[in-house]
């Protein structure tokens, strides 16, 4: 009876936990719910999709957004060859130095470099974007409530005109899914924004899916290894726990109750308890 009560209260508690972040004050429309290739215990990344997403990032997003936690060598993990990744890196210049004269200089980026930032620092970023700061996107799918569905919604949720009763501030745009609906970023993706090298049809939805998948990978590059190892670990634990249970049942089933009375060690314990003389 107590067990059931406890389980019900525990279930209530657990069900509240996902709502922990939901006390956000600003409202937004309910998010679209998509199926991603990397959902679930057996999920994995669709590498052609990640490569298309990287193209979207480099050609569109990287103009304002940094991706500082990702290195050009990580592009090899999504299926580019070392030479391709090297070529993509060398399109960008990175500051290095000082040289022998004490001067800093620019050089093409290498595989071992981080993705090059579009702006030198936060102030420069704000200045170039009317006071708004385009955040680094390395972990953005983990940094927003709704995660991948939110990013996809954001990309596709722009309306040309705000609803009639909505007062849109100067310099902002109306987005269905952005909390508060007013976002400083103009719609970044349109149909045919990027000409896909693998020939996939460049619809807005496709661009949005691909960039979201790419950003999900950028935030969780370890995901596939993590899930693979997780399945092995939990399977191992289930088998081991079952064996522990079998052993436990066996050890506990063979007790004859009376014999401990004459256990010499327990007799000594009894004498010790006499010494402490506890009542009741």
């Amino acid at each position: 009876m107590q067990m059931r009560k406890f389980l019900i209260s525990a279930a209530c508690a657990i069900s509240f936990l996902p709502g922990i972040a939901s006390a956000a004050v600003a409202e937004a429309d309910a998010l679209p719910s998509l199926k991603w290739s990397f959902d679930g215990i057996f999920g994995s990344y669709d590498r052609p999709q990640l490569r298309r997403g990287s193209q979207v990032f480099l050609e569109v997003c990287s103009g304002c957004h940094s991706l500082e936690m990702v290195y050009y060598r990580n592009l090899v993990d999504i299926g580019f060859t070392t030479d391709q990744a090297k070529a993509m890196a060398s399109d960008y210049e990175i500051e290095d130095g000082p040289d022998d004269e004490g001067e800093m200089y620019m050089r093409p980026a290498k595989l071992s470099d981080r993705f090059v930032k579009p702006f030198a620092n936060t102030n420069a970023a704000r200045f170039a974007n009317g006071g708004a700061f385009p955040p680094d996107l390395s972990v953005i799918t983990k940094a927003r409530k709704g995660g991948t569905d939110y990013i996809y919604g954001l990309m596709t949720g722009y309306l040309d005109d705000a609803p009639a009763d909505f007062d849109l501030s100067e310099g902002t745009y109306y987005n269905k899914y952005y909390p508060g609906h007013q976002i400083f970023m103009a719609q970044p993706l349109y149909e045919e924004a990027v000409d896909y090298e693998d020939g996939t049809e460049p619809t807005l939805e496709q661009h949005a899916k691909d960039i979201t998948a790419f950003l999900a990978w950028a935030a969780n590059p370890e995901m596939e290894e993590r899930k693979r190892l997780g399945i092995k670990v939990i399977l191992y634990l289930i088998i081991l726990t079952a064996m522990f249970y079998a052993l436990k049942r066996r050890i506990w089933s063979n007790i004859s109750l009376e014999e401990f009375v004459h256990d010499p060690y327990v007799v000594e314990y009894e004498q010790e308890m006499q010494r402490h003389k506890r009542p009741n």
Partner: peptide, 17 residues
């Protein structure tokens, strides 16, 4: 220090355990 025969031994179970 528990006495011998504490756990009632069942010869058939011995090998299985």
């Amino acid at each position: 220090p528990s006495p011998n025969g504490t756990i009632a031994e069942n010869p058939e179970d011995e090998g299985k355990r």
